[in-house]
Design a protein around this nucleic acid. Structure first.
Lengths: 234, 234
DNA sequence: CGATTCTTTGATGGGCTTCAAAACGTGTGG
DNA sequence: CCACACGTTTTGAAGCCCATCAAAGAATCG
């Protein structure tokens, strides 16, 4: 959040207190299961997680990948039962907090609440991008968009990442995120490679022609182009 | 918002002031255009609107239908340029307000801000439902889900609506919302009719077997099952 | 009442799925 | 450290769902 605006020391200590408790989560572990009573919310400190839903034919739709700094389970906060499952894709560290803490922040820190809202809106717009991708773009474009999004999000917490990065996902998972089968994801990756847009080696992906990739994917980085000048005073 | 909790007179007057200015919008008119600098936000008072994006092959993805009581353009508030277009599907009345007013509410009315956040989260979950529908369900299921959602949302502001309602959308629009072609939407409506799930007459749709329709559509009403006990005090 | 938009139906084709199986990694226990 | 089991990646073949193209009715509007 400190990347959006300069925080006051008061705000900073409030957030530090919010994140004071920490919990380790193993790869594959589930933090919250769909349709079960929802307990806490979390801030992801380290690692990669995802949220997904299971349809009753057994298929899975990955709704979102979660990166360090993201808030998890905010939507669950307002429902009696969780609308989505939260699971760890790598070993993770999370900081749990409860609804009371959220209510406390909203009462005492208007600017922090506004920034939480800003985060929620960024996430919402990213969701609409994916909605448009699933509804109206080709398999190749969806896979390309996922690669770009993943690289950009990973780079936020690891500045060393440039055009090469570890995918960290199976092709099955890429398929569940893009609405495709693992088989077809494989073919699309192959095509992107043949087209000279990406390269692959030992589980690492290289974005060879990022410009062309973004064009093919209709991709917009939603963490740019913000206007936060209107935020309430600290 | 008064349907979520009992508002205090202070909160009520704040919201009334927010909605004091009113503007008429003709059917087909555009309130906000994608990629243009965003001005105001709005509360929809009357009528039916939609938000959509255009992809560069000219295809359209309708992101959301907007009903009385909904806030429009909240996502635009945080960007310099609007990420989506807002257009009226029927003659509408909207109440415009600016970012300053939003910041003012967040400072002076913690509970109202929390309720705005609740609204945003409901909308987010509804979006993820549609994401899962586009990614993992059949054309028939998507059309069925749209019919159920539309009926339920319309009923909120018009209690007289039961199982019969005016669609208010062209099949082209249904297609742009569900990621299908108008031609295929037509076939799916026909199939739903042949299956005895719906009936159609003079532009009106009847949900004949709502239970079966919800099952076919994997549909969950996200305006139910809320837990708002944690909201900050008024 | 003419014009335009919307709905409906048919025929054809393609993108993606499904099914199947081999090659490749990767972690685990002996 | 090897052997085995299991998950993942890769490739092929066949088929289906939905798109595309086309055109005729129906409805709506000026």
């Amino acid at each position: 959040m400190s990347e959006l605006v300069e925080l006051t020391s008061d705000e900073r200590s409030t957030l530090e207190k919010l994140e004071s408790r920490q919990r380790q989560v193993r790869r594959g572990a589930v933090l919250q299961r769909e349709n079960e009573p929802c307990g806490e919310m979390f801030i992801l400190r380290k690692g990669l997680m995802m949220s997904y839903v299971l349809l009753d034919d057994g298929s899975r739709q990955i709704l979102r990948f979660l990166f360090p700094g993201d808030m998890l389970g905010m939507s669950s906060a307002i429902y009696r039962e969780a609308p989505e499952t939260l699971a760890a894709l790598s070993d993770c560290t999370v900081a749990p907090f409860d609804r009371t803490a959220l209510a406390g922040i909203m009462t005492a820190h208007p600017r922090l609440s506004a920034m939480i809202m800003v985060h929620a809106q960024i996430e919402r717009v990213a969701l609409t991008d994916r909605l448009a991708a699933l509804g109206r773009t080709s398999a190749k474009a969806r896979v390309a968009a996922l690669l770009l999004e993943l690289r950009n999000r990973l780079r936020v917490s690891d500045k060393s990442i440039a055009n090469v990065f570890a995918l960290g996902l199976t092709q099955e998972e890429v398929g569940d995120a893009t609405g495709l089968t693992a088989v077809h994801v494989n073919r699309m990756l192959r095509q992107l490679e043949e087209d000279g847009l990406i390269a692959r080696e030992a589980g690492k992906v290289t974005l060879v022609d990022e410009r062309a990739l973004a064009r093919a994917a209709n991709y917009v980085n939603r963490y740019e182009g913000l206007d936060l000048s209107w935020l309430p005073a600290a």
